[in-house]
C-alpha cells in the first residue's frame, strides 16, 4: 500500500527525523568527546562541538589498546565466521529443501529450535565443549562403557581431548553453529520452481553441480545479506571472546579491548576517567562494520527483501 498525501509525507519525515536524531546524538557526543583533552571532557558543561585533539587521542587509544594485532585477530574471526556461516547455512538449507530423507522434518525442527537458544543462553555448556571439543564423544564412550572395554582390553585409558580455548577455532566455531543463516537460505530455496530443478536434472547436472551452477549464483544477494549480518555480529562479539580467550595478548578481540578503555573504578583507580580515549577507540572500532554495511548495502537490501524474480 502506497499512500501519497502531503500531510502524511510530512508526518513520515518527522518520524524519520526523530529516529535519526535519536540514533545520531550519541554518536555525535562520542565523536565530540574523542576530539577534546582529558580536562575538557571532564569539565562541567558537556562539550557539544568538536575540539582539535582527535588525532592525538586516536593515536593514544590505538597504542594503549594494542589495536594493531587485535584488529587482525578480529578480522580473522569475523571473516572466519562469515565464511563458515555462509557455507554451512547453504549446505544445510540445500539438504533440507532439495532432498527427501528420513527424519527430515525432525532435523528441520531441531535446527529451528536452536534459534531460541542463542550463544548467551547456552554459554556454560558451550564453554565446556570449547574446553574439550571431544568431551561429548568421551561422554558417549564413558556412558556406553566402550572406554572401560578398551581399557580392559588394551590397557590404554581413553581420554579424548581437543582444547579450543585460546584459539581462532574456539572463537569462530560456536558463532558459526547457529540456525539463522539456514533459514534465510531455506526461505529462498523454497521459492525456486521445481521445474528449474528438473531442468537441471535433465541437463545432467548432479546435486552439487546444481548447487554450484544454479543455486549459488541465484542466491548471491542472500549470501551478501547474510555475510553482512554475520560480519557485524562477529565483529561486535564481547561475551564469548572474553570467556574463551585468556591469552589476550595473542587472541584478544577489539571489542573486549575497547571495554578495557571504558573508565570504571578499577581501571582509573579513582583517577580522572579517560573518556576521550574510550570514545576515540570506539570510533575506530566502529569503522569496519560501517564500511562493510556501506559496501554491501545495495546487495544486502535486495537480499533481504528478495524482489527480483
Amino acid at each position: 500500500m502506497i499512500e501519497r498525501t502531503p500531510l502524511l509525507n510530512i508526518a513520515t519525515h518527522l518520524i524519520l527525523l526523530c529516529g535519526l536524531v535519536l540514533i545520531l546524538t550519541p554518536i555525535w557526543l562520542a565523536f565530540v568527546a574523542a576530539t577534546h583533552t582529558l580536562q575538557a571532557v571532564n569539565s562541567a558543561p558537556v562539550e557539544l562541538w568538536p575540539g582539535d585533539q582527535l588525532w592525538p587521542n586516536l593515536r593514544e587509544a590505538w597504542a594503549q589498546s594494542d589495536f594493531g594485532p587485535k584488529f587482525v585477530n578480529t578480522l580473522i574471526v569475523a571473516i572466519g565466521v562469515v565464511a563458515g556461516k555462509v557455507t554451512l547455512a547453504c549446505i544445510t538449507a540445500f539438504s533440507l529443501v532439495f532432498f527427501r530423507f528420513r527424519f527430515r522434518m525432525l532435523i528441520f525442527w531441531m535446527i529451528f529450535i536452536t534459534l531460541m537458544l542463542p550463544l548467551e543462553v547456552r554459554i556454560v555448556p558451550t564453554y565446556a565443549v570449547a574446553a574439550n571439543a571431544l568431551s561429548p564423544f568421551q561422554t558417549i564412550l564413558d556412558v556406553t562403557g566402550i572406554s572401560r572395554l578398551i581399557q580392559a582390553v588394551s590397557g590404554i585409558e581413553v581420554s579424548l581431548e581437543w582444547n579450543l580455548l585460546n584459539s581462532y577455532a574456539g572463537l569462530i566455531l560456536p558463532l558459526v553453529a547457529t540456525a539463522t543463516g539456514t533459514f534465510l537460505y531455506r526461505q529462498f530455496f523454497l521459492t525456486i520452481p521445481d521445474e528449474l530443478v528438473e531442468a537441471a536434472r535433465m541437463d545432467g547436472a548432479g546435486p552439487l553441480r546444481f548447487l554450484w551452477d544454479v543455486l549459488i549464483p541465484l542466491s548471491k544477494t542472500n549470501i551478501a545479506a547474510l555475510a553482512t549480518i554475520m560480519f557485524v555480529y562477529a565483529w561486535n562479539q564481547y561475551l564469548w571472546p572474553l570467556l574463551v580467550v585468556t591469552d589476550r595478548a595473542a587472541y584478544g578481540m577489539v571489542v573486549v579491548q575497547l571495554s578495557d578503555l571504558v573508565p570504571d573504578q578499577m581501571t582509573t583507580g579513582g583517577g580522572t576517567p579517560t573518556w576521550h580515549l574510550a570514545m576515540a577507540a570506539t570510533l575506530v572500532v566502529m569503522l569496519p562494520p560501517i564500511a562493510i554495511v556501506i559496501l554491501m548495502q545495495r546487495w544486502f537490501v535486495r537480499g533481504l527483501i528478495n524482489t527480483d524474480k
Binding site: E195, L196, A199, M202, D203, G204, A205, D213, P217, L218
Partner: peptide
C-alpha cells in the same frame, strides 16, 4: 541424464542468471 531424453517444460524452466547461450549450452558444459 542416462535415458537420452530431453524435456521442454511448460514454464520454460530457463536458468534466470545465465545468458541464452549459456542456457542452451549448459547440458554440453555439464
Amino acid at each position: 541424464r542416462e535415458r537420452g531424453c530431453a524435456m521442454v517444460f511448460q514454464n520454460y524452466a530457463l536458468y534466470p542468471h545465465m545468458t541464452v547461450a549459456q542456457n542452451i549450452g549448459y547440458a554440453l558444459k555439464v
